[in-house]
Design a protein around this nucleic acid. Sequence first.
DNA 1: CATATGCCTTCCCTTTACGTAAACTTACTC
DNA 2: GAGTAAGTTTACGTAAAGGGAAGGCATATG
Lengths: 134, 134
Amino acid sequence: MTDSQEPLIQIGKLAKQLAITTRTIRYYEEIGLMGPSKRLSGCARSYNQDDVLRLKFILKLKELGISLKEMLDLAESFDTHNQDFDTITPRVLEILDLHIGKVDDKIAKLASLRSVIVNYRSRISELLQSQSTA
Amino acid sequence: MTDSQEPLIQIGKLAKQLAITTRTIRYYEEIGLMGPSKRLSGCARSYNQDDVLRLKFILKLKELGISLKEMLDLAESFDTHNQDFDTITPRVLEILDLHIGKVDDKIAKLASLRSVIVNYRSRISELLQSQSTA
DNA sequence: CATATGCCTTCCCTTTACGTAAACTTACTC
DNA sequence: GAGTAAGTTTACGTAAAGGGAAGGCATATG
C-alpha cells in the first residue's frame, strides 16, 4: 500500500473530472465535509486517491437526496464512535430507511398529483368537445 | 347567486382555519398568487368563499409539490388569454400535459433513486450480517 | 381611561448550496 | 519581463418560502 509517490491531483482538475466547480469542493471543505486538504507549495490544495473517493462518495449521497447537513451528522457519528463498526452501521441504515420513506412519500404524492391533473385535463377536454359539437 | 351578505372572514381566522400563518397568506398576496384582497374599514383584509377556495387550492397544489412560481406561471396563462374560452382551453391542456410530463419525469427519477437507496441499504445490511456472524 | 387584541406595513433574518467578483500569489511560457 | 492560467482568501449575492420584530392604527372591554 505504500506507493513511492501517491498520485496527487489539484482542485481544478478534480473539479473538472467530477463535473463540479472548485467552489463546491472548497465549500465542502469549508463546512467540514472534506477535512482540511494538504497543500502544495504555494498553498495549492492537493488531493490523493482517498480524498477523491471521499468526494465521490459525498456526491453520490447528494445525488441520493441526502443533504450536506445530514452527511455532516453522519460523518460526526462516524467520528464519535468510529472504533465500533457495529454501532455506526445501524445508524446509517436508519438514515437510509428514513430516506426511503421520504422518497416513497414523494412518489405517492406525485402519483396523486398526476391523477388530479389527468382528471382535470379530461374534464377540460370534454368541455372542449361539447363546445365544438354545439 | 346574489347572497344578501357574503360571509367574510378575516386573515387571522382564515389562517387558523387552514393551519398556516397570516404571514403566509400575505406572502401569497405579495407575490401575486392571491390577488389583492378586499379591505374592511381599518384596511383589514377580508376573504369571501371564493378566496378561501382559491387559497385551499393553492395549498393543495403546494402539498402536491408544485412550486409557487409554477403556480404563478399557470395563473398567468389563465389571465392573459382569459377572453376567449376556445383559445384558452387548448393552452390549458398544453400546460397540463406539460405538467403531467414533468410529474412523470419526477416519478421516474424518484423511483430510480429509491432503488439505488434500497440497493445500497441491502449491501450495508449484508455487511452488518456477515460482521455479526464472523 | 388603560390595556389587550387584531390588523397593518416595512424591513431585515433564515436556510441551503453554492455563484461570483475582487484582489493577490505562484508558475509557466514567450 | 509581460502575459496567461490556475491557485488563494474574503466576502457579498442568490433563490424559496416564509419568520419575526418594530412601530402604528382601530376596536373591544373592564
